[in-house]
Structure formats: structure tokens, C-alpha cells
Design a protein around this nucleic acid. Structure first.
Lengths: 176, 176
DNA sequence: ACGGTACCAGACAGATCTGTCTACTGTAAG
DNA sequence: CTTACAGTAGACAGATCTGTCTGGTACCGT
């Protein structure tokens, strides 16, 4: 991975997450990453290409972060929930990057939406498998709930609603 | 309310909700509402003004719709949840207009975000008051949860995830 | 009859956004 | 040494977006 490419991607990740995708132009990314315009279009064939790189990279990051959480059963879910609760009330939290992106891309067939769908499927499966590993009944339905509560925590945290975040965590823990 | 103004607002409501705020330009609204550009700027001093009108009108609509739900206690919450569950898996549902708008306006001090905050506060209070009217304990905490689950249902429904919506409704009903 | 107001049609300015292009520099491999 | 490539700087085209302005029509209350 070349230095310029990662500088572009890091800058895009920071700006897209903090300010939104449509509000941040490629000129802004180029300026803050201190690369030439030609260099940008050498590494990414379009802005959409950069957006997809941003989301898929984030997806991979989450896989490493959450998949690598301690334990394999409900203790893993608890660890993930603890982490989620912590970051979602922390400074700089602006919601889930996938949900925010989905809100900006209304067409469900858009490639961006496919990444979002993939992420949510993966998360649901992670929950379901963890529940099954601890022999919990109704793993599928509980996984659906844990996904929905995760969405709610991300939204509430992004809006600065700490009370709702706590209520969500309590409910999720009670369900596992 | 003049005919042109309501035509503009109706068109904006339809387009902003279905396609997002930043992706829809005023030219598009003007064309589909079949009004002159001068007429648009006669009624709304800027695009932001139109966006705020869209959201505050939606807020008022929700107040009438949900506040007018049958009953005053938990039966009102149940009626609201039933309605939410129904529309959120229906065609044309694209999530909560307030949450979608918040995702597009990253600055928490932006007027758009204030409307979103107002809506969520109102919804939480409606839940809390309904719980108290039925003498349910821990009304505040349960209201937080109902708000978070509402967020989750709106998100999941907007992404076409019917399973998660159902899981959310079950959990909310169990909590009241 | 008249003045105000709501409306239509569309040109226009100015900013901004994406993407292309030219021209040049440094560097590492063959 | 030279060829290929990653990089810099910045002009440029073409589209799009917001907001203003001109000019004209129709209705409504006084």
C-alpha cells in the first residue's frame, strides 16, 4: 500500500465519518491528504470508488475488532456490547458509518447499500453463532434483536442520547 | 396556505424523504412542483428554509398521528407500535425522516438537528407519560428503551430487514 | 380603475463539484 | 543509463447547484 493511497483513504475516512459523504468533496480530501489530483485519480477511479474503499475498509476493521473480541459465546457478545457502549458515548462518535452511509444512498441496489447489507448480515451471524456456542435457545430471534438494539445504540449515541444507549445495553444484556 | 406553497412543500417532502436532502436540488423541486423559481424564493428564503419546513411539518404530522392514537396508557403505546410495525415494512418506507436528516447534518448545533432533538424528546415524553398513566414502574427507563427500539425499528425497516423489525416490536411490547 | 400580490417563464451570476489533462520531478529496477 | 512508475502542481472542461433578476400575466380588494 503506497503512502499516498493510505493518506487519501485515512483522510477520506476521517472526513466522511465526521461530516458525511455528500458534503465532503474530493477536492477537500485531496487538499487535506496533501496529494495531487492526478495521484488521487491514479489510485481511485472515481469518488464512488473511494467511498466503497472507505466502507469496505471499515467493514474489515470491524471484523478484526469484533471478531477478535475475547470468548466465543455470550461472553463475546458481552464484550462487544461493553465496547459499543463505551465508544458510542465517547467524543467524536457520530453513529454507525454504515447506517449513516445508507441514509445518504437511498437506492437499495447501490453498491454502497450492498456493503451495508453485508455488514449487518455478518453482525447478525456473529450474534447468532455466539448464542449457539453458549447453547442459548431462540438464537435466531435473539440475534435479530441484538442487531436492532445495536442499530438503536449507534443512532442514540450519534445523537448524544446517553440515557437511551444505557437502556439499550441493559436490554441487550438481559436478552443474552 | 397558497396552492403553490403547499405544492412545493409536498414535492419537497416526497423527494427529500425518498432520495435524501443533499441529493435533491431546488431546481428539481421547482420542476416537479411546476412552480416558477421566483415563486419558490418568494415562499422560502433558502433551501435550508425549505428543509426546516419539511421537518417541522413532519413533526406536526407525527404529533397529530401518534398523539391521537387511541387510549392514554400502555394501550396507546401498543397502538403506536402496531402502526410503526406496519408502515416500517411497507412499500416506500425509507426509515425515519428525522434520523435520515440527522445523518446528513453532522453538526449537532445545526437547526435541522434541533428539530430532530425536539422530535425525539417529544416521543420519549409521550412514552413516559403513557407508562405513568398505566402506573407502570420505571417509566423513565422504559421510555428510553422504547425510544431506542423505535430508532432501531425505523433503521431496520428502512433497510428492508423485516426480521429485526419484528424482534424489535416483540421486545417493546414485552417492556410495557 | 388601481395597487398589491401571487404566480409563471427563464436568463443569469457565481460558486462548487467531478474528472481530465499537461508538464514536471524523484526514484528504483533492469 | 534508461525505462517505468509514483508522485507534485495546477489549469481546464463540463455539469450542477443556489440564489437573483427581469418581465409579464391574472386576480382581488379598495
Amino acid at each position: 500500500m503506497s503512502s499516498a493511497r493510505s493518506r487519501i483513504l485515512d483522510t477520506a475516512t476521517r472526513l466522511f465519518y465526521a461530516e458525511g459523504i455528500h458534503t465532503v468533496g474530493v477536492d477537500r480530501v485531496i487538499a487535506e491528504a496533501t496529494v495531487a489530483k492526478a495521484t488521487f485519480y491514479h489510485h481511485f477511479k472515481s469518488k464512488e470508488d473511494l467511498v466503497l474503499a472507505y466502507l469496505t475498509t471499515e467493514y474489515e476493521r470491524q471484523k478484526v475488532l469484533l471478531g477478535g473480541a475475547p470468548g466465543t459465546g455470550v461472553e463475546r457478545i458481552e464484550a462487544i456490547l461493553a465496547k459499543l457502549a463505551e465508544v458510542s458515548v465517547g467524543p467524536g462518535f457520530r453513529g454507525c458509518p454504515f447506517l449513516n452511509a445508507a441514509a445518504e444512498y437511498a437506492d437499495p441496489d447501490h453498491p454502497v447499500r450492498h456493503v451495508v447489507d453485508d455488514y449487518r448480515s455478518w453482525y447478525r451471524d456473529l450474534m447468532r453463532d455466539s448464542l449457539k456456542a453458549s447453547d442459548r435457545p431462540n438464537a435466531d430471534q435473539k440475534a435479530d434483536l441484538l442487531l436492532l438494539v445495536r442499530d438503536g445504540i449507534a443512532v442514540a449515541g450519534g445523537l448524544g442520547d446517553k440515557d437511551a444507549v444505557q437502556a439499550g445495553v441493559r436490554t441487550a444484556l438481559a436478552a443474552v
